[in-house]
Amino acid sequence: MQALLAYGFLQRAFLAGLFIAVACAVLGVFLVLRKDAMIGHGLSHIAFAGVALGLFLNVLPLAAALVVAVGAALAVVKLKGRAGLHGDTAIGIFSSLGLALGVLLASLARSFNVELMSYLFGDILAIEPIEVALAVGLAAAVLVAVRLNYDKLLFMTFDRESARAAGIKVGRLDTLLMVLTAVTIVLGMKVVGILLVAALIVIPAAAGLQVALSFRAAIGASAAVAVAAVVGGLGLSLVLNIPASAAIVVLCFLAFVVLFLVKKGRGVPPAAA
């Protein structure tokens, strides 16, 4: 394994994977608690249209997906606020539209090929140096943005009305959270693919929330699960010659099951009336 780690492609995979995993896990805790877990699923479908557009226009698919996903995230926020749509209807609309446009563009570009498959199912071992730089830089930017707004995001997630009364601009924070999620989703699709990236947002957060007694602990536990799953998944992929994306998601789920059982074993008392 140590000898394997000397390979540049593996170093790139671990570096990008770890940064993206932490960004996904941290945002995931906020999204799950806001009952916005499906936003990752929706934005990943929209990102698919971006990838197809990149292939169609012959530009870096990751960059095209970034522009399309961030644009759609902003549109979702506007649509939720102005069109009076219920719950996750806005994300449902954009999710379906994204997938349809993706299929259309990929068909027009005649690019239903290996490259498109690598975005659908992830191929972190084939990540390019420029993609690593983009991934590490943007994931770090996401984490810095969350850190700078941590207290406000926590207040808004816990009690939106009191946060507004305390002068917090919750609309701006909604937009920030959606944009950060769109960026993270686009980065995550290189690790586990468009079809599985929502898992990297939701499952580590859901796992961390099983055992955490404070919000800070939930963030820490979620990040730890995501990092362990990425490291373990990449390792299993190399040793067993299986797809890294699937191994990462399955390990996330196993961590969820373990932490769920830990909570059951701990005998968490029911919430008092």
């Binding site: 608690l33 207290d151 406000k152 926590l154 207040f155 816990f158 009690d159 009191s162 946060a163 305390a166 917090i168 929330l209 955490a212 007694l213 404070s214 919000f215 800070r216 602990a217 939930a218």
Partner: peptide
């Protein structure tokens, strides 16, 4: 919701 009592009280102050 995994918030400790001191996290809840600190929300108004820190944000």
């Amino acid at each position: 919701f995994p918030a400790s009592v001191e996290e809840v009280v600190g929300m108004t102050l820190l944000s």
